[in-house]
Amino acid sequence: MNTTNQLPALDIRPLNAEDAERYFLLRLSGLEESPLAFGHGADEYRRESLEAVAAGLNEVAGERVTLGAFLKGELVGAMTLTRDPALKQRHKASIYAVYVAPAARGQRVGERLLTTLMDWARAVPGLLQVQLSVSVTQTAARRLYAAQGFTVYGLERRALHVNGRDIDEEHMVCFLDGG
């Protein structure tokens, strides 16, 4: 079994406005390559301005972060966590926009990103659970989330409708306090 010492050096850090163009291209690539995995389509995303993308990347302490994974200086993966703003729901946060470029797969980039993101979440006072939705077609992602302590709490039938095909999504949660 691989250990972290045998894996290529990976730099994981919060993205910011200066990363907007690289992030835009990575996300667009993901939307094109894996249309069954995302709620937004590539054509929709192409209409986003770089200014809007940049504004959404800046970390807000305890509220929002998009982590990027860099191999040899190239952005190869990203995932975002956003805390719920509603007073009665501030104990929850959601993960979305998760993608690892095909060339970086098999190097535990997703696992290393998720571990770092969950460490960030555990450091947020009052944050008790992290939720996500994952397309049932995304077997590797579902395995990753389960291995990191996420459990399924619901199935949304026909959550996505892509090119005439209905895609179900599992809703998963990880309780940071043991739940």
Results as ranks from 00 to 15, higher is better:
residue 146 A to N: 01
residue 132 L to Q: 03
residue 5 N to V: 12
residue 156 E to Q: 11
residue 155 L to M: 05
residue 123 A to R: 13
residue 136 V to A: 01
residue 169 E to V: 04
residue 65 V to P: 05
residue 95 I to P: 03
residue 141 A to P: 03
residue 18 E to L: 14
residue 91 H to E: 12
residue 60 V to D: 15
residue 74 E to G: 10
residue 172 M to G: 02
residue 179 G to T: 12
residue 102 P to V: 12
residue 74 E to L: 15
residue 142 R to M: 09
residue 145 Y to H: 03
residue 89 Q to N: 15
residue 118 M to Q: 13
residue 19 D to G: 06
residue 31 L to H: 02
residue 88 K to N: 10
residue 21 E to H: 04
residue 39 G to T: 11
residue 87 L to R: 15
residue 136 V to G: 02
residue 154 G to Y: 00
residue 28 L to V: 09
residue 125 P to C: 11
residue 9 A to K: 08
residue 4 T to Y: 05
residue 173 V to M: 04
residue 162 V to A: 01
residue 30 G to K: 00
residue 60 V to W: 02
residue 113 L to M: 08
residue 96 Y to R: 06
residue 5 N to G: 03
residue 98 V to K: 03
residue 165 R to G: 02
residue 164 G to Q: 03
residue 73 G to D: 15
residue 36 L to P: 00
residue 47 R to A: 15
residue 8 P to W: 04
residue 170 E to F: 10
residue 25 L to V: 04
residue 120 W to I: 11
residue 62 G to Y: 05
residue 103 A to S: 09
residue 128 L to N: 14
residue 105 R to D: 09
residue 98 V to S: 05
residue 171 H to D: 00
residue 22 R to H: 13
residue 127 L to T: 06
residue 23 Y to Q: 05
residue 176 L to P: 02
residue 159 A to F: 00
residue 43 D to V: 12
residue 12 I to G: 05
residue 173 V to C: 06
residue 126 G to E: 07
residue 108 R to S: 08
residue 58 N to P: 04
residue 134 V to H: 04
residue 101 A to F: 12
residue 97 A to P: 07
residue 111 E to D: 08
residue 177 D to V: 02
residue 73 G to T: 13
residue 99 Y to G: 04
residue 27 R to M: 07
residue 23 Y to G: 02
residue 73 G to W: 07
residue 21 E to K: 10
residue 158 R to T: 03
residue 75 L to T: 09
